[in-house]
């Protein structure tokens, strides 16, 4: 009444949310090392996230590999460097397509389920009850889920890479009339092992982001069951935004730090 409330600074809300998101990420990182580790919950969550993501990922990966192969194939023929089609499409798939496809599916299928689960627990006051019983919900519930998202992301990333490369090979060799020998030779001429590492590292980081954002929105739904629906929605959108941004940063750093092969 008497105290004049200052007009909130525009954008202050968004900043605060971002800060709290980071705080949660930090909390999760710290709690990963707290014993006892929730092994059962972790295994269950891995199984759950894998079961909702494997099939869609494989189904998305095949056409994705094909698109990359087709697009690059045409472009490279125009440039007159047919012999490098294999290398180009493999690099594109492993470094960019695979981590992103993985992350989108982990966020869209796994993250949304995590967010809905945590959100409904929050509105049923289960999280509060757990805290009052002296058990940290972050250590108990969030850490296993985030770790599960990370592990599944890494494994799926491998799956997408393999399926995508095979799809690309199929399209290039069978449909575009490329030669198998050139495909494989160019591959080993341009690609190098760090390309695979950065791909897996990206998947790991994207899995972490998807898990933390889902948990954050789930722990802070606004007002009742309707709020949980909104939270799920937002968690997927926020994750996508963050993923593309982080991907950009990682790619830029990688291209600067790791010298391209043959240059």
């Amino acid at each position: 009444m008497t105290a004049r409330t200052a007009r909130p600074m525009p954008g202050a809300g968004a900043l605060r949310e971002t800060g709290r998101l980071f705080a949660l990420g930090l909390d999760v990182a710290v709690n990963i090392f707290k014993r006892p580790f929730q092994f059962r919950e972790f295994i269950q969550q891995c199984w759950f996230i894998a079961s909702v993501t494997i099939l869609p990922t494989a189904l998305v990966a095949i056409p994705f590999g094909a698109i990359v192969a087709l697009q690059l194939g045409t472009l490279i023929v125009q440039l007159g460097a047919q012999s490098f089609t294999g290398a180009a499409s493999v690099l594109a798939i492993i470094q960019q397509a695979a981590p992103l496809v993985t992350a989108l599916l982990v966020a869209g299928a796994g993250g949304s389920a995590i967010c809905a689960d945590i959100g409904s627990r929050t509105i049923r006051e289960e999280i509060d009850a757990m805290e009052v019983l002296g058990v940290s919900p972050i250590q108990r519930l969030i850490v296993p889920r985030v770790l599960a998202a990370m592990l599944v992301a890494v494994l799926l990333n491998g799956l997408v890479s393999v399926v995508g490369v095979m799809g690309g090979y199929f399209f290039n060799v069978v449909l575009q009339g490329g030669t198998p020998g050139a495909y494989l030779a160019s591959f080993s001429a341009l690609a190098q092992l760090p390309d695979l590492w950065i791909s897996e590292l990206k998947a790991l980081i994207f899995g972490f982001i998807a898990g933390v954002v889902a948990a954050y929105r789930g722990l802070n739904p606004k007002g009742g069951p309707k709020g949980v629906g909104d939270a799920v929605n937002q968690s997927v959108v926020i994750t996508f935004l963050l993923l593309f941004f982080v991907n950009f940063v990682l790619t830029a750093v990688y291209l600067q730090v790791v010298p391209a092969k043959g240059s």
Binding site: E125, E126, D128
Partner: peptide, 9 residues
């Protein structure tokens, strides 16, 4: 004791 019991579902 929470308002709706707050049992773990």
């Amino acid at each position: 004791l929470f308002q709706d019991g707050a049992l773990f579902g």
